[in-house]
Design a protein around this nucleic acid. Structure first.
Length: 586
DNA sequence: GCCGTTTTCGGCCCGACTGTTTTCAGTCG
């Protein structure tokens, strides 16, 4: 069973408790939801943690849930869950995937009309709504029947609760809406918040906060966004709509005197806010988007900046990328937040594919070496690395390959002299299924180092893939493992690796792991970045550019490093040229 | 059902909005 499946099961258990007796099981519901979230977000598979006896290391998993997980893994089911879910049709859980459908509504409809089949549940409900049968149920009316029909039809078109987009796409939509908002003179400030501000690799909704003294006009103006489709809600201080592309946008507006608490509230994450509010309660303070309420006096204090808001709690301001409730609150209280790496710390980019014809088997670059250097200079870099894919082995003899690399190196040296800019002579070398590198020894000899990566035969057992990668990295010239999981966000999960073994190996043998900055990859994942750093593994942030302007994507890689608590010294390409040379030789 | 800088027992975040109500339940973030 995958983490995702386990997480789904836990959410079904929580929903079942809600249906049976929300008040009585209030805290069990929260517990299962929390555990579900932790399991879904865990970089480790539950099945592996079970084998290693580390189930209770998952936050939110205590003695009882641990027993349930053990039973689930051993027998494929949990007796207690079957009891809890008894009498609740699977159609209920299917309906709950539709936005605006919670456990109560889904249960009521499924029960009223005896819906049993989870496969036809959506279509069944759609028909009932069209036939006008929904509005006759107690608690429903004409309007809710119409809304329900809209929700089902949108969901069928793929506008579900789980539809997510990659960062640049979300950023573009957010910027377009912010441009629209700023055209109105009542808008004093507008900022993208939520998971976008926290720079999560995938973003669900677009959250925007506005500072204004005229909420009503701003909300009105927001709803007049030209690329708006359906209006979801429109209240005194919040509003939401779907864009024509089906993305949900949530707005919240408050006066400038309260903008600080609004930024804090709307940036999240939910877990961060819950923990922060629990901590504040201990000081007799209650937090919300409007400010901080003293529970003894009932007095609300307002904050125009986020810095002041955190300060009032006796804390350091926490960079948004860290707000995931993974220790940042504790660190902030103790003045121990990391000094996160920044884009301006980056001195070079090692993973660049030039257009120099090395006759690689796939994906040649489009920009010349000279163009890449000029671009790097514009970014204030000190050096770059050339990392074209290795020449195809099937079409060349070893001698031909060596000669191709010699030519490339010679051209690099020419440019290096002409433009007075340091260039590392690298390659991106495939790790073949047997763990050998796809370059002959004589070719590897004339390189400063090589990046290695997997580009074929993705389907392998985890142990075999780990062995393959470590074998590839074992060559003295192999110094960087590129896009370690091979994932493509939203498209391809990537292969499995034993990261414990990989990190140990890299630490012992001075190998670096890449954070691939391309927004479709962002691989190594941020949760693994955090673990790698805790283990003392060196990382490198590369753009994997196939065209010079892609070098601007460094920003996204740095964001992922920051989400993993990376400081400057954890990242190879913040080092000087000579320090990098030393690292390659170690 | 989890968890600990006040706690191994007694707590457990906070509010906006909508529709169907006539004071609130449900959903969402």
């Amino acid at each position: 069973m995958t983490n995702k499946e386990i997480s789904k099961l836990f959410l079904e258990v929580a929903a079942s408790y809600t249906i049976k007796n929300e008040k009585k099981y209030r805290f069990q519901i929260i517990a299962y939801q929390k555990a579900a979230e932790a399991i879904e977000g865990s970089p480790y598979q539950v099945i592996d943690l079970y084998k290693e006896g580390k189930l209770d290391e998952i936050p939110g998993v205590g003695p009882t849930i641990k027993l349930r997980l053990e039973e689930l893994i051993k027998t494929g089911r949990v007796k207690h869950f079957d009891d809890v879910k008894k009498g609740i049709s699977p159609a209920v859980f299917r309906l709950m995937e539709i936005p605006s459908f919670g456990p109560k509504k889904a249960y009521k409809i499924a029960t009223e009309f005896n819906l049993k089949n989870e496969k036809t549940a959506l279509e069944d409900v759609r028909k009932l709504a069209i036939e006008g049968k929904i509005e006759k149920i107690e608690g429903f009316g004409k309007k809710s029947e119409e809304d329900l029909l809209t929700a089902v039809e949108e969901f069928k078109k793929g506008k579900g609760k789980t539809t997510k987009m990659i960062l640049p796409y979300a950023l573009e939509i957010a910027n377009d809406i912010i441009d629209h908002l700023k055209k109105h003179k009542a808008v004093l400030d507008a900022k993208p918040l939520g998971s976008l501000r926290r720079m999560k690799s995938m973003v669900g909704d677009i959250d925007i906060a506005v500072s204004t003294n005229n909420p009503k006009e701003v909300i009105e103006h927001f709803t007049n966004y030209p690329r708006r489709q359906r209006l979801i809600e429109k209240g005194a201080i919040t509003s939401s709509f779907l864009t024509t592309g089906g993305n949900q946008v949530d707005l919240m507006v408050l006066p400038p005197s309260q903008f600080g608490s609004l930024l804090q509230h709307f940036t999240g994450s939910k877990d961060h806010n819950v923990s922060l509010r629990e901590f504040a309660l201990g000081k007799n303070l209650s937090l919300n988007e409007k400010g901080i309420k003293n529970l003894k006096t009932g007095k609300l204090t307002k904050y125009s900046t986020e810095e002041d808001f955190y300060k009032a709690l006796g804390m350091q301001w926490i960079p948004p990328e860290l707000r995931e409730n993974t220790g940042e609150i504790e660190a902030s209280k103790n003045n121990k937040l990391p000094n996160l790496v920044e884009v301006k710390d980056i001195k070079g980019d090692f993973h660049l594919h030039s257009s120099f014809p090395v006759e690689e088997s796939h994906d040649p670059g489009k920009s010349s070496i000279e163009e890449l250097v000029k671009k790097a200079r514009g970014l204030n870099y000190e050096y770059i690395g050339l990392s074209e894919h290795n020449p195809s082995q099937s079409k060349h003899t070893n001698d031909q390959i060596v000669r191709l690399l010699e030519k490339r190196n010679k051209e690099a040296e020419k440019v290096e002299k002409r433009l007075n800019f340091k260039i590392f002579k690298l390659m991106e070398t495939d790790i073949l299924p047997n763990g050998k590198l796809a370059l002959p020894q004589d070719a590897l000899k004339i390189l400063d180092a090589t990046i290695v990566s997997i580009h074929s035969v993705f389907i392998m057992k985890k142990e075999d893939m780990t062995k393959r990668v470590i074998e590839g990295l074992s060559h003295p010239k192999a110094k960087i493992l590129a896009h370690p999981s091979g994932r493509l966000l939203g498209k391809r999960a990537g292969y499995e690796l034993d990261y414990d073994l990989l990190f140990d190996f890299c630490k012992k043998n001075n190998k670096a792991i890449e954070i691939n900055a391309h927004p479709k990859r962002l691989d190594l994942d941020d949760s693994l970045v955090k673990i790698a750093i805790e283990r003392g593994v060196m990382l490198v942030i590369n753009t994997d550019s196939h065209e010079k302007d892609q070098m601007d994507l460094m920003y996204y890689g740095v964001a992922i490093a920051r989400r993993g608590w990376a400081e400057k010294d954890d990242i190879i390409n913040t080092m000087s040229y000579n320090e990098v040379l030393d690292f390659f030789k170690k």
